[in-house]
Write a protein that binds this DNA or RNA. Structure first.
Lengths: 215, 215, 215, 215
DNA sequence: GATGAATGAGCGTTCATTCAT
DNA sequence: TATGAATGAACGCTCATTCAT
């Protein structure tokens, strides 16, 4: 098994090894996406990849490692897409809007990856029975978005609100947008994202003094 | 087998029959909630109920019917709790706030039920592989909430926005609140619900004329 | 699974349950005896019993429990046969001779049982890798025989020797007799047992005073 | 593959070839000794040797040949150690004592080898299901020891007894000593060997005329 | 000489379901 | 009304071996 404990100083995984792992991961993503977590077996993944199922065992320590690799890979991929687009914005409002829109843009071309991620996210558990991933795994994402909110509150761009609740809500709204689009593929993802951006712009922006006074 | 297509004229399910079904459903809810979808087998449910597992097969046509009964029952229960609290509000804003708060209140005392519902919702598939429930199953809920939004928009209470997106987002925000609270049980659910109500109040309310003009 | 955690007060295992367990154990004994430890799979045992292999899983918690049951059952059976025949002897020499001869007699009619016992004894390991049974499991047998030797030494019937070494050696000699007979089935088991009895009689009996003096 | 049927005139196995085979055999011995027959796979042996598992397949025709090589090598090693020490004795009693003691001495420094030997001895089977080694494989050892006994009986040093039974019993006693020491490593191996020598000296020596008469 | 890659066979186990009682 | 007994299918995984490089 090349995937772990590779001796120090040894050449990195061979080309063929990397290609197989990639191929298997892609087949697994499709399988999770199409059949769902409970119906995804190594046999089905192998079938889709056109290989013997023991090939999977050869390249991955087990089903768990395969799933963890999927999560890791998809997560990195999303971050690489979304972060630059978010960070180049100067205003907090702009950053939030860019964040939502770029995630939506990513979704459009990575439906299967995000579906697979969700299946694993929602279902994979440790041997002890606790969720392997879970809301807690989003902590990093929450904190990143919280930073935007705090910044906006300090600059006076945003009203007073609980940044954590807002952050959790934005994430939920994005997840909900994805789920809705998956169910209704003809749904206009871009328009939905814009609506969400408007929604959170209104939800976060500073209130006019006289408004505040009237509350 | 007795659960469906009961011949016309036959007495309704006996007391003992109903008691057994209830007991099994409750054990199943606990099991789904504790162990997750993939680790919930009829054997485990039976073990928790302290009965033989073929008793389950006797009272339910199969695992699928058991899960469908859970969904139906929990759904009804939520609706019975939430709808009256929502409908007694007169303003759209009030209705939305009451909606969010009452769901949160329900959550607090029905953690296991909602967890089990989520497990089944996210994972149960038809024999053909499509999701048995899914976003589409929420259609009723969406429409109910959309009605509130449209009313608010007609009365001028709300600004112009896409009622469907807003409805999906409210639902997502509520689901996200639940997931967050499940992960962090010490999290203040009531405060979160109030924050959400504020959030959507800001997100929906009509803009002042001069604001609109400035955009 | 009836085999464990039977609720208190519940009727003991049903007749059919006991019959199945017995049948499976017997098939397993034959399989271990014929094919050896490494070639004995639940599939092979089931095949020999003419049942589906999942029946074994139904009646036993696992392969390990099946093997432990074999050991327990065969052990009890031997003890029930040998102990009475040994204990009715009055002299230590007589007890030793009766012990050896009765074991040999038992062997003759329980070849497969003892072979299976040996396979499991020599190979079964705990999940941590240590032998499940081993020499230490013979402790009881050793102690029983040591008691005979000590008694003989106190009465002056036996010479001075290390009772533990003698006990271990008697057991080894019996095991060796069995192994030899298994390999050469025409070998005269009874004569071998008598030779062993003579051997240990000479090896244990008290030396005459002048012999001792001359050493 | 190189190990057998090397074409005539070809140089003997290269140094590196021999070194690899030796390394693999040693790792295999450790693995059999530590993990037991059933848990010893080529993968585990390779892991311990720090080599790829197909290296084993390259140097040995298969797992079976590897095991046979272990048996052959350990057997030769024991014989080289024990035989000279036994043969230099002039009396039959002395030879027996030397035999037992030298085996015990060998054990002390070759625990793993003897354990591995035992694992293979007890478990390796032909494709037809018969034991590959077994009591019959000891024939040579038995005959060697029988020669000692017959000699002693001819010189009048030993009493009348069945030399084959005595030979089998001596071997069993030695095996038993090893097994006991493996379980209780603090057990005094040398003292045990001396006790055994005494035991068999008493068991074999000629009886005094009056003793015989009294029986 | 050496090995990474692949494979089919078989393993023990869990599963939802059926059926006779 | 209840359940013990049974089962075939499928599961994730390990195995010794083969083969191209």
């Amino acid at each position: 098994m090349q995937s772990k404990n590779r001796p120090v100083g040894q050449k990195r995984a061979s080309f063929i090894e990397e290609a197989r792992r990639t191929q298997i991961i892609e087949s697994a993503i499709e399988t999770f996406s199409d059949l769902g977590y409970a119906n995804t077996s190594l046999a089905r993944v192998a079938e889709r990849a056109g290989i013997s199922k023991s090939v999977i065992s050869y390249h991955f320590a087990g089903k768990t490692e395969l799933m963890e690799q999927i999560v890791e890979q998809v997560y990195l991929d999303i971050a690489q897409f979304v972060l630059p687009r978010t960070e180049k914005e100067t205003t907090a409002t702009g950053a939030l809007r860019a964040n939502i829109r770029s995630v939506a843009e990513y979704m459009r071309d990575h439906r299967a990856q995000l579906l697979a991620l969700g299946e694993i996210f929602n279902n994979l558990r440790t041997p002890e029975g606790e969720r392997r991933y879970g809301v807690a795994f989003n902590e990093q994402v929450y904190e990143g978005r919280e930073a935007i909110f705090r910044r906006g509150q300090q600059t006076g761009e945003f009203r007073a609100f609980d940044p954590r609740v807002m952050s959790v809500t934005v994430q939920s709204a994005i997840d909900g947008m994805f789920g809705y689009w998956v169910t209704y593929p003809e749904h206009d993802l871009e328009a939905h994202a814009d609506e969400l951006a408007d929604l959170f712009e209104h939800a976060t922006r500073a209130e006019r003094p006289d408004e505040k006074a009237n509350r």
